[in-house]
Amino acid sequence: MLLIRRFEERLLEEFSSGKLAGTTHAYIGQEANAVGIFDVLHKDDIIFSNHRCHGHYLAYGGDPYLLAAEVMGKSTGLVGGRGGSQHIHLRNFYSNGIQGGIVPIATGMALAEKYIKSKRITLVFLGDGTLGQGIIYESFNFASLWNIPVLFVVENNRYAQTTPIEIAVAGNIPDRFKAFGINTWECNSTDVVKIREDSEQAVNFVRSNMQPAGLILQTYRFAAHSKGDDFRKPEEIASNKKSDPLLIHGNRLEKTDREMAESEITWIINEAFSRADQDPYPGSNNLPPILL
């Protein structure tokens, strides 16, 4: 969680100092979600992530250097600078930058794994904002009809970019799953231990029944949606920071352990960014001839 927090802070810093171009979506405040869930996944389970994918990737065990290089657009990046912040791939981890469009794809991946009897399950991330996209409901229908082992994880951070959930989402979230006969778990905590517990039930259900499930995580992001698009009240943000997942879990650790973690992670991040900084940008030799 600390690695994700410091990595995202460093990225935002690099953007504001003008060293990085393009865009980013920080996971600051939501770190416990990915860390909690992924702890109960198997190593070769499949994850399809969205625009806010850095935290998911790092929780998956992805190398911070490869991600730093990718966001910088270097040829040594995760996908050679072609994908950037939102479009990355590592082993069984995928991400794409379209809201909801990844949901049927993850559902199809889970279906393929079911056919080949791999026992792998597939997890896909949605946000509260994604609930506005029709294709997710088509996917819920398929997943339920065909008993597809996919876990739909809704990270409800209560804002779709700048639009609060109260004026964007009618009804309630669990009923959306219920309508399709999909079992759903909810977790209203930012404590990684609690998130892990609730996730374990949902993950185990999907794996042992080979059926879909929903997992709704009530969460909050401390940073802007992207950059310069935060119009929330400072008091609201401050009050949510009282349940900062790092604070909650940090209190379980000894001070010396916390300090050690900080210094180790500072070293990892400095190393990742300074190494990536020296790497080359891709050039015309990275564009293959177009085949007819």
Partner: peptide, 19 residues
């Protein structure tokens, strides 16, 4: 079902996992 977008999405996911 009548869900053209999801049908293509599901097929894409199946294809990415070897089918």
């Amino acid at each position: 079902p009548i869900s053209e977008a999801a049908i293509v999405g599901i097929a894409t996911g199946m294809a990415m996992r070897g089918l």
